[in-house]
């Protein structure tokens, strides 16, 4: 699979209007973006629409990618995830099948879950956040993971976790600050 430099090169060429590079970028990365969108949206049709929107954005915004912004694949994943959040905000009343928080936690244990998409750098990034998430209190970790993989708002998290709104906000914020400290220590 393409490495960071190759993806960055295709992104750069895409920014210049090189359609073949854009196609190569799509071929190399769309399966990872689609997997994330399926996980968040739980509906293939909506995930496919969001994926299409995401790559339209990629074509339009490729010139805003800069290597200092990090790995190309995580940049692409961010674009896809923002599309998914937009879809969820529009469809809010329609709630998909909930996933138990415990299942979220198992993601941290699943060392095989990392796709073969990219090698070392992404493996390290995922390892780092996995390790740091484990240092959070369980409710903090569940809140962050549910928000990330299901796009839940504070209010929805409060309902799902059966906790007062203020408490959930506090879990999220303390969790994120702890995550930041831990990631900085590992850097």
């Amino acid at each position: 699979m393409a490495e960071r430099e190759q993806l960055a090169e295709w992104l750069s060429a895409t920014a210049r209007g090189d359609e073949q590079a854009f196609q190569r970028l799509y071929a190399a990365t769309s399966s990872q973006l689609y997997a994330l969108l399926l996980r968040i949206l739980r509906n293939p049709e909506r995930a496919q629409d969001a994926l299409q929107d995401a790559y339209v954005r990629v074509w339009q915004k490729a010139d805003t990618y800069a290597p200092e912004r990090g790995a190309p694949l995580t940049w692409l994943l961010s674009i896809a995830r923002y599309r998914a959040l937009d879809v969820l905000r529009r469809k809010r009343p329609e709630v998909a099948m909930p996933e138990e928080p415990d299942m979220m936690a198992t993601l941290l244990e699943d060392e095989q879950a990392l796709s073969p998409l990219e090698e070392n750098e992404n493996q390290q990034s995922l390892d780092a956040i996995r390790v740091c998430l484990k240092t959070l209190q369980p409710q903090q970790r569940d809140s962050v993971l549910l928000a990330y993989y299901e796009g839940l708002t504070h209010q929805e998290l409060a309902e799902r976790l059966d906790a007062p709104l203020g408490t959930v906000k506090s879990w999220i914020r303390r969790g994120l600050m702890r995550l930041r400290e831990c990631l900085a220590e590992r850097a």
């Binding site: 196609q23 799509y26 769309s30 399966s31 990872q32 973006l33 689609y34 997997a35 994330l36 399926l38 996980r39 995930a47 496919q48 994926l51 299409q52 790559y55 339209v56 074509w59 912004r69 990090g70 790995a71 694949l73 995580t74 940049w75 994943l77 961010s78 896809a80 995830r81 993601l107 699943d110 879950a113 990392l114 796709s115 073969p116 998409l117 990219e118 992404n122 990034s125 995922l126 780092a128 956040i129 993971l145 990330y148 993989y149 995550l179 930041r180 990631l183």
Partner: peptide
């Protein structure tokens, strides 16, 4: 975006249908 974005690497890849690429090229 980079740090939390790494969580997006965890799900195993799934190939999207070809219609998605068709839609991208058509829309653009």
């Amino acid at each position: 975006e980079q740090r939390l974005g790494a969580l997006g690497l965890a799900p195993a890849p799934v190939e999207p249908p070809a219609a998605v690429w068709d839609g991208v090229t058509r829309q653009l």
